[in-house]
Design a protein around this nucleic acid. Structure first.
Lengths: 175, 175
DNA sequence: GCCTGATATTTCACCAGCGAACTATTAGCC
DNA sequence: GGCTAATAGTTCGCTGGTGAAATATCAGGC
């Protein structure tokens, strides 16, 4: 009994009926935004199921990966908030969780003692190197329905959309 | 200082560096899934900002809209869970919240007394008719970067992806 | 009619994430 | 040097969402 298919059908039918009652509904946009959120939510759940055995959620994982992939393996909470799309409050919790498992270390910056420097530990690097490869197959499978061309197109459109809504979300932005 | 742009760049750079350390990384898939989640998250935040003045979050809103757009304005919690992609636990909370504001009513089904029937009230219909149109412009603006053709393509690919991952998310599904 | 198992919903205890307020430090200005 | 404003992190209290257990009802075999 497929969950997502039911939702997709409900979205299309619902939008159709709403449109007949409230003219002016931007049908195309509603469909896009609902499909986008539904799909992203499903992929997130699937991914976090895979992460669960390692005791991580997606935010923790993203933060760890940002440190793993940074030039020198370090970053301040503020930087990581920008890179991993997090709020400072949550970054504190994430850093606590990762530090408690010795995947990262905490220290103070010398030039600005307000800043905290998070650094991925050797154990953290080993952890990433070990847990990452097993996640590849299901990720590949998720997008197996796309041809190479479709993948490229989808990526291009997603990127375009992401950059377009950027200033809309944060109104006082000066690109 | 754009948030999303920074994230997009971080994703591309991060994936590049991770790939040079852990060969075999499915680069294309990682980019797609990260862009998808990032974009959906941004759109969700933007949308919930618009909903906040009405005292709703997206889950409440989706549930209310499913009742609004249903044939007879009714539905059971179980049905709504399927249609609105929610867990039963949360649907109880949503129904409580909507019922407290008299946007929906609760009653028992006669043929199966286990079931609860939720029904959108006249006040609920008026509420939807009033709060929906003001949300159209920003939704249209969000997708204004797409041509009609791009919109169609994006919708087609999203739908294809959503239906493809459906059985993957829920393994014991029998389409 | 009664027992067994399945189904619909709710309750409970918990986790993740958020805004607002707080602390510590820095930078600018006189 | 000392006052003010800005910045980096953290703490706190709250909301939204979840899994597991509890409750109530139904369906089937006997």
């Amino acid at each position: 009994m497929p969950r997502i298919k039911t939702c997709v059908e409900a979205i299309y039918e619902g939008v159709g009926r709403v449109n007949s009652r409230i003219p002016g509904l931007p049908v195309s946009e509603v469909l896009l935004v609902r499909l986008l959120m539904l799909t992203a939510g499903a992929l997130l759940r699937e991914f976090e199921d895979k992460l669960k055995p390692y005791g991580l959620n997606d935010s923790d994982f993203r933060t760890l990966m940002m440190l793993y992939s940074s030039e020198d393996g370090t970053g301040t909470p503020g930087e990581l908030c920008l890179l991993a799309d997090q709020k400072p409050t949550n970054m504190t919790r994430i850093a606590n969780a990762l530090a408690k498992r010795d995947l990262i270390s905490r220290s103070h910056a010398t030039h600005d003692r307000r800043q905290v420097v998070l650094r991925i530990t050797p154990a953290g690097r080993r952890f990433v190197a070990k847990m990452l490869p097993p996640m590849f197959p299901s990720l590949v499978e998720s997008f197996a329905c796309f041809s190479a061309a479709e993948r490229k197109t989808f990526e291009r459109l997603l990127k375009k959309l992401a950059l377009h809504i950027d200033p809309l979300v944060d109104p006082d932005a000066t690109s």
